[in-house]
Amino acid sequence: MATMTYRDALNEALREEMDRDPDVFLMGEEVAEYDGAYKVSKGLLDVFGDQRVVDAPISELGFAGLGVGAAMAGLRPVIEFMTFNFAYLALDQIINNASKLCYMSGGQFKVPITFRGPNGPALQLGAQHSQACETYFLHAPGCKVVTPATPADAKGLLKASIRDDDPVAFMEGELLYNFKGEVPEEDDFVIPLGVADLKRVGSDVSIITHGKMVHVALQAADKLESEGIEAEVLDLRSIRPLDVDAILETVQKTNRVVYLEDSWPYAGAGAQVVSIIQEEAFDHLDAPVLRVTQADVPMPYAKNLEALAKPSVERVVGSCKKVLYR
């Protein structure tokens, strides 16, 4: 095991995949000479040259679609959005083209493209730069969605996403880039999509979550432990494909569930998981499933309001106690 930051883990994954497959190239704003707005692509220009590490103009629709066309023609592009907030400009290309081309063409075309970049609420960036965007990409059949929470997951899942033959929205936690963790040193460390990871074992209540909120869930579990409650934390890692077996397993074990996400509640990943639980594990529930989400408002700037809008350890602890009727 090597200890490294989430940022460096992503950098290693890109480096290894570009080294392995000459069809992989990275394009986005500031990815080359500036080393990436969040320095994820640091040093790649020197290694791979400006044909494979490409600074794009500020034209999200254009360069996202360029990647889709290049993927149709046989390349394996990695398109970086400086943040996923800006990917909304490219939604037509991601939803109407990347996600539907295989189907519309009767399987003639595959679109092996990875759209990646930071996602999720940050610190006092206001409504347009601070939001979790995954629901938009989850909603359309044809696009896979991956949300790593740790350096190891970031590395292993990015390598799998690049190799996947479908479009993948690879959504990094904006506040996680400096987060350090252990990463296996094996030659080709790949984590398959669709496999959840039990980040903490418990028996009283299950906190199911994805992305950056894994860390809030773990903090909440620590707090609950001090009050004699053993919480299990299930990190879905990818939310499409979704590890339904792992979800059902933890429900059957604890019979009580809280879904935690920093996206809005309406029609989000949590809503889908709750629906699956009530359809497929109804008899195993001892309490209604609760959700802790971003408040159903655009992100406010004022520090106190922002704190109120975001899911907190306290709200998770409170919801866990509620499903335990304590």
Partner: peptide, 23 residues
């Protein structure tokens, strides 16, 4: 390469095909 229903939606794709040719 299609056959696209959103006005202008094929233009980025064409540009990507051009990118692939050059690449």
């Amino acid at each position: 390469f299609g056959g696209h229903g959103i006005v202008g939606g094929q233009i980025p794709l064409a540009t990507g095909i051009g990118w692939k040719i050059k690449y």
